Simulated scan of single mutants.
Amino acid sequence: MTLTSKLRAGIASAAIALFAAPALADDVKIVASFSILGDMVEQVAGDFADVTTIVGPDADAHVYSPSVADARAVAEADIIFVNGMGFETWSDTLIAESGTEASVHVATVGITPVLVDDETDPHAWNSLLNGVIYVQNITAVLSEAVPAHATDFAANAEAYIAELTALDAQTREKLGALPAGKSTVVTAHDAFGYLADAYGLNFVAPIGIDTEAEPSAQELAALIEGLKEQGASALFVENITSPALVQQISEETGLKIGGRLFSDALSERGGPATSYLAMFQHNLGAIVTALEAAGES
């Protein structure tokens, strides 16, 4: 059975379930496309909605293949949030084939896109002030959809935004105190353009914004040669990509791997990045530690 056939079978089952047991009026079912966005939605919705995430922790949304369970969740949803900016290439097909009557909302509306090699970088959450825009967009949607709890959503959002802006100020302070000239960070793929743009860092990577792409031997050799000539201060693997390329860069440049960054997904339960705030705190701590060490060498 093909994936499309499986999805259609799942959708049919979901339709039967919906007919047999309609949701309560205040039992709002929300689907978020990936784990970071799902956490933001949960922070705003609180106890007043049931949030399902399609692409879970430590999973790569760039190359994800939806399942029958995903199709069922979308078919049953009242509200769907996606990141947009070309991030979830599979989402339009999944939503269209599900037959869902849910309203679909792009969480990045109002964010100025960063371009990487003339392509739109979809990883907008890697700036905390962009994270505030995500939260404001989510709050507006939920307040309109469930006006009875608009005050609750607003209160949750206000408290959450206060945490995000406080961490943004802390990030600027910590990164601003780093030694001059020690700001180049190497990662597996181009996921940190917004962090670089917001906080004055320079990120380079062997893979572009889409993890499906692979560098040619010539491109990788040119990157390694450039790092040998110009230097870099930190090197990291990511939670959603193979460490092989980063290990090769480490071996050929002498750069020590400074740990693992969480780029496109949260960590599994028990990990260091189980929420958007925790993810940013972990990444910030790892980057600062590596760049401080580079400044002392």
Score class of each variant (00 low, 15 high):
Thr2Ser: 11
Gly10Arg: 00
Gly10Met: 00
Ala15Ser: 12
Leu18Lys: 14
Ala21Cys: 13
Ala25Gln: 08
Ala25Ile: 15
Lys29Tyr: 06
Ile30Arg: 05
Phe34Gln: 04
Gly38Phe: 00
Val41Ala: 02
Val55Leu: 04
Gly56Pro: 05
Ala59Phe: 03
His62Asp: 12
His62Asn: 09
Tyr64Arg: 07
Ala73Val: 11
Ala75Leu: 02
Glu76Leu: 11
Ile79Val: 04
Met85Lys: 12
Gly86Phe: 02
Gly86Thr: 04
Gly86Lys: 13
Thr93Phe: 15
Ile95Pro: 03
Thr100Leu: 02
Ala102His: 13
Val104Pro: 02
Val109Gln: 15
Leu115Pro: 08
Leu115Tyr: 13
Asp117Ser: 10
Thr120Tyr: 14
Asp121Tyr: 01
His123Val: 03
Ser127Gly: 07
Asn130Phe: 03
Gly131Phe: 05
Val135His: 01
Val141Ile: 14
His149Gln: 15
His149Asp: 15
Ala150Lys: 07
Thr151Ala: 15
Asp152Trp: 02
Phe153Cys: 10
Phe153Asn: 02
Phe153Val: 00
Ala155Phe: 08
Asn156Cys: 06
Asn156Met: 04
Ala157Tyr: 03
Ile161Met: 10
Glu163Gly: 11
Leu164Gly: 03
Leu167Ser: 08
Leu167Lys: 06
Thr171Ser: 11
Leu175Ile: 15
Leu175Gly: 00
Gly176Glu: 12
Ala177Arg: 12
Pro179Gly: 11
Ala180Glu: 13
Thr184Val: 06
Ala188Cys: 11
Asp190Lys: 06
Phe192Glu: 09
Gly193Thr: 13
Tyr199Val: 01
Asn202Ser: 08
Thr211Asp: 06
Thr211Ala: 11
Glu214His: 10
Pro215His: 03
Ser216Val: 13
Ala217Val: 14
Leu220Trp: 08
Glu225Trp: 01
Gly226Ile: 00
Ala234Trp: 03
Ala234Tyr: 06
Glu238Asn: 05
Val246His: 01
Ile249Arg: 00
Ser250Ala: 14
Ser250Cys: 09
Lys256Trp: 07
Ile257Met: 07
Ser263His: 04
Asp264Lys: 01
Asp264His: 01
Ala265Leu: 03
Arg269Leu: 15
Gly270His: 12
Ser275Val: 06
Ser275Thr: 10
Gly285Lys: 05
Ile287Ala: 02
Leu291Met: 04
Gly295Val: 09
Ser297Asp: 15
